[in-house]
Amino acid sequence: MSSLWPLIQNETIKIVKRKRFYVILLVLLVLVPMFTYAQMKSAERSRDKFNSDWRLELQQRITDNESSLSSDRIPDEWKRYRMIFIQQMRYYLEHDVNPNEPNGVTFTREFMNNSISLFIPLMIMAIASDIVSGERTTGTIKMLLTRPVKRWKVLLSKLVALLMFISLIVVSAYIIAYLVSGLAFGYAGFNLPIFTGFTIVGSEVDMSTVQAVPQWKYLLMQGGLVWYVGVCVGMLAFMVSVLVRSTAASIVIMMAALIAGNILTNMASAWNSAKYLFMVNLNLTDYLAGNLPPIEGMTLNFSLIVLAVWAALAILVSFSVFTRRDILN
C-alpha cells in the first residue's frame, strides 16, 4: 500500500531535528584535536631522542621488546604478542618503510584502528539506542502506530534511516580525523606503503602472504571493516531499543556489552568459547594490521561470520517482537 520512502524521510527528519548527529560531530571535533595534540607531543619527543631517525627509533623498540621476552614476570600471552610485533617491525625495517611516519593519513589510520571497538560503536549507539525506545518513552509510538501503515514498514524505515546515519558517522569520523590531524602533521601520506596480510601461526608470523598496499587503499579496506562493525553494533543496539522501553536502560545495556568485550579481549584468551560473543569480535582492523587475535582460532572470516549471525538474529528478534507486541503504555 503506502510506500516506504516517506517513512524513511520522517525518520531521517526526526534524527536530524533531535540534534543527535550534531552532538556526534561535536564530540569528534573536540576529541580528535586532543588525540592529535597527544600524538604530536609523542612525535616531538621521539624526534628529540632519535634525531628524527625513525630507523633508530624502530630498532630501539625492537630491542626493548626483545629484552622483555626473557623476563619471567611477563605472561606468555604478552610474550607472543611481542614476538609477533618484533617480527613485523623487522619486516618494516628490512623494507625500509616507516610504519609510523607522522602525517594526517597515518594518524587517521591509527585513530580508526583504536576507535573501531568502542568509540565508533558508542557514537552509533547515540542514535540507535533511542530510535525505538525514544518513541516509547515519550509516548509518540501511539501516534506512529495508529496510522494506516503496517508495523514492519515503520520499523524497516527506522532501520534504513539508522543504516544511513551509521554510514554517515563512519565517513564523518574519517573526514574529521584527516582534516584536523592534517593541520598538525600535513595532509600527505596517501601513497605511503603499508604492509598487510601477515598470517599468524602460533607465535610465528608467516610473511609469505604479506603485500604492500598504498595507505589510501589500506584506509578503504579499513573503512569497510569499520562500517561493517558499525552496522552490526547498530543492529544490536536497535534490537535492545525495541526490547527495552527506557532509552537510558537501552544505552546502559549496550555500553555494558561493549565494555565487557574490551575487557574480555584483554583477558579471555583461555576461555575459548568466548570467541562466539559478538563483543570480542569487534577489532576487525587488527586482522588487517596483523595483530594477534584475542582468542586462538579467530580469523577475519570467523569474526565477520560471527558478527553477521549476531546482527541477523538481532534483526529477526526486533521485527518479530515489534510487529506482535501490545503497546500498553
Binding site: 526526526k14 515519550t138 509518540t140
Partner: peptide
C-alpha cells in the same frame, strides 16, 4: 490518552510527519 507529539518539531512539522504516513 494524551496527545503526545514530537516536542522537538513544530506543530506544522508534526502534521507533515503524520501526513506522509497516509
Amino acid at each position: 490518552e494524551n496527545p503526545e507529539m514530537y516536542s522537538f518539531l513544530t506543530g506544522w512539522e508534526n502534521l507533515e510527519h503524520f501526513a506522509r504516513m497516509q
